[in-house]
Design a protein around this nucleic acid. Structure first.
Lengths: 325, 325
DNA sequence: CTGAAAGCGCTTACAG
DNA sequence: CTGAAAGCGCTTACAG
């Protein structure tokens, strides 16, 4: 079923059908009515790809490429982006790349090829060594990044300063009189690295006497064991985690060792995700405002296409949400 | 930059460029090399939409429409689908509709119009009163459903029997000697309804002396308060929740009331999500195998397009994962 | 091995 | 108000 079929059944030319569909140009009231009826009856849907080819009308498709959608930070970002962009009439193509640079390039190629109007990268994985993928993408379509800073033509960033956030956590612990800090993270990304730097410099700034860092894998049980081992072998009075899941594991570890939280051990999570409210005691967690970043980015994309004005650099504030740990 | 530009720079016709790109038909070795070099240099990407128009080549795009991607059940399903489908060369367009039937129809229209090859509905919201949206979609493209049963031409379902799962939970509690059951759910969907029916009939089957049901909203704090109120006013020895988040809230409520879990109160979650491992005590939860359903669906879609053979009805097993509650 | 030409499903000046 | 024709960026018989 195409525009020719409709035209034939309605007894008009395809040009007229096109006008009726798009409400462009003149078309007689009776004619329009007839055409619309035929379209209804035949359950006809005009092809967007053909429209795109014909007049260059945008497909209204934006690509989102993210590290891992099962990580709640990304879930939140994608959820908000989808909601906000769909209000502006954009649909989204989602792809998850993990850390593989090859996979990132593949996603970018796909999006260019499939005529996406813009591309959003979420996650710090896209900064640092994978930056060239982004620079290349920016030659073909506008690029928007959440949670990483990359500079270049046609590139727009929205992020939260990940080392200042950790400084805030350290400061809070310092004010509580804590002096034996542990920082826990899982993967070696650009973002983790910034957090780590933030941790180290804050430890220096506040003259923390005792600090250590551990990196652990992705499996929740193993994470918990690793933390448990560390806590049992090292004198520690507080732990800062690179995300809430790690913090939940830290809580489990502390419970197993019979260490009272928050009396003997402070635990700070990161991202202020749903998980922070599911643990008991409920997690104190650093709110780094993904939601804000995603909302801003959606609006920014929309204004890119409407006014042609988009902001290239946006930094959000953050806040330590103090609960029970 | 299009195929004409490439042809000109390479000094050949566009037909030859096309052949070189697609590895179809003969093209001289030297000619091919030259063309490929030009393409490299010019950073040229052929337009998939034009290819699609020209020879009907599928866009390799599958639409996913789900209730709410922030609910971890859907997150998991989408994550697995994305991973498995991308292996088969399919990219995904994601849209979230909530309960709005109008929104569902809008998403379907968009997917037909944008030439998606198939459409996946995730969630029981799509069964029952919204079924007509699905039936309509199935006239235009193959439909795959996760977690609901809808029958019709071109429709393929994969699900878990939501009333048998709840029966399993009730049976487990019965075997534990529990007699005062509470069932908690949040939204009125087709799926919740099946769970509820399962609960009621199992309560009858096992001659549970005392049972009640509460429905609460979406906000975690409010949920917890509602449950807390119920527990304090009614004699209850176990609670079955329609998802893990509700169960986490139940745990919080019990903790506030000083009710020992699992000694005085059994709590069973549902979906066996990440949340089940973040609470303490860790949640006993019903594993309804979304992951399996998503993997099956991805494979099913692939075989639909390769062999033309797809299974229309697939039911997964399930299992109560017993942890500490 | 290569090119000219028709066609995919649309839109849009242009002419009437 | 309506239609014929050209064009969007490709692919694919067909002829050479």
């Amino acid at each position: 079923m195409n525009i020719y079929d409709i035209a034939k059944k309605a007894g008009v030319s395809i040009a007229t059908v096109s006008r009726a569909i798009n409400n462009s140009g003149y078309v007689g009231k009776a004619t329009r009515q007839k055409i619309l009826t035929v379209i209804q009856d035949e359950n006809y849907y005009p092809s967007r790809t053909a429209q795109n080819l014909s007049n260059g009308a945008p497909l209204k498709l934006v690509g989102i490429v993210c590290y891992n959608i099962e990580d709640m930070y990304y879930t939140k970002a994608v959820a908000v982006l989808e909601r906000e962009l769909s209000i502006c009439g954009y649909d989204i193509i989602l792809s998850c790349t993990g850390e593989s640079r090859q996979q990132m390039q593949k996603s970018v190629d796909m999006l260019i090829t499939k005529k996406a109007d813009a591309i959003i990268f979420i996650g710090s994985v896209f900064a640092g060594k994978s930056e060239s993928v982004i620079q290349n993408a920016a030659k073909h379509l506008p690029v928007f990044i959440i949670n990483a800073q990359v500079y270049g033509k046609n590139i727009h960033c929205a992020y939260c300063d990940e080392s200042l956030t950790i400084r805030e956590c350290v400061k809070h612990l310092f004010n509580l009189g804590r002096q034996k800090l542990l920082f826990v993270y899982d993967v070696d990304t650009y973002g983790s690295n910034k957090k780590l730097c933030g941790f180290n410099s804050a430890v220096r700034e506040f003259c923390i006497s005792n600090s250590s860092v551990i990196k652990c894998g992705a499996d929740l049980n193993i994470i918990s064991q690793v933390i448990q081992k560390h806590l049992s072998e090292n004198d520690t009075d507080s732990v800062i985690c690179a995300n809430d899941l790690l913090a939940a594991a830290a809580l489990t570890a502390a419970a197993k060792l019979g260490i009272a939280v928050p009396e003997k051990l402070s635990v700070i999570g990161y991202n202020n995700s749903l998980i922070a409210c599911c643990t008991s005691p409920r997690l104190t967690s650093l709110e780094n405002n993904v939601q804000k970043l995603a909302e801003f980015t959606a609006k920014n994309i929309n204004s890119y296409f409407t006014d042609g004005k988009a902001q290239t650099d946006y930094k959000t504030d953050f806040k330590l949400i103090i609960r029970e740990t």
